[in-house]
């Protein structure tokens, strides 16, 4: 048997979650196992340095450069690593392309696997029971919760991230974006469009 037990050690900690975390951090610090300054660096990394702008840059490049797009769809891991996007929860990357026929959408039904180096830490909804439970069975109803409606006859392909492969959706390039540079295109790429629960902005919706 795996280590099921009735005397769960976690029940020894204070019940309030914030106090529980504090108690663990303090205990591990006093035992010389955790450096609080290292925790600050980890948090700063995912709050300020690694986030969906990374993925947006990959998408904008793919929209502008057919050879880059081709290489990305064939074997994304070395292509995004060349841009500096490699590391924890992004060691094996596959990019899947939306077309008029197929809309891709990513979930992790068993936990919360997500391409951290490209999109950062997953949002709360991605980790929620409702998304994990429903995305594979009724993707269109889930998309309605995001205000997204697919064209008729578009098939949905849902990717359940059950291994250490991380998926990024390459959304369709919006109409009317010919001639935009990389930075202008990046401004159109939303986080949700790279998970498959949204579309990119159109130029008239572009964030300033």
């Amino acid at each position: 048997m795996p280590h099921d037990h009735s005397d769960h050690p976690h029940s020894l900690l204070p019940p309030d979650p914030a106090l529980r975390v504090k108690a663990l951090e303090t205990l591990l610090t006093r035992k010389g196992l955790v450096d609080p300054a290292a925790l600050d660096v980890i948090i700063d990394t995912y709050e300020n340095k690694i986030g969906p702008r990374n993925g947006a840059r990959v998408v904008a490049k793919a929209w502008r450069d057919p050879a880059f797009r081709q290489a990305l769809l064939e074997d994304a891991t070395p292509v995004v690593a060349d841009l500096g996007y490699y590391g924890r929860q992004g060691e094996h990357v596959v990019v899947v392309e939306n077309t008029a026929q197929t809309h891709n959408m990513v979930v992790c039904t068993l936990c919360s696997c997500y391409p951290w180096p490209l999109l950062g830490i997953p949002p709360a909804w991605y980790k929620s029971d409702a998304y994990r439970a429903r995305a594979v069975r009724e993707p269109r109803k889930v998309l309605q919760d995001f205000g997204v409606t697919l064209a008729e006859n578009t098939a949905v392909r849902v990717w359940d991230s059950t291994a250490e492969v991380r998926y990024l959706v390459l959304p369709e390039r919006p109409a009317g974006t010919e001639g935009l540079d990389e930075a202008e295109l990046m401004a159109l790429v939303t986080r949700d469009s790279m998970i498959g629960t949204g579309f990119p902005r159109t130029p008239d919706q572009a964030a300033p």
Partner: peptide
Amino acid sequence: MGGRFGDGPVLP
């Protein structure tokens, strides 16, 4: 929980 019923709406 993949496919489970009853979890309600996703809240983006």
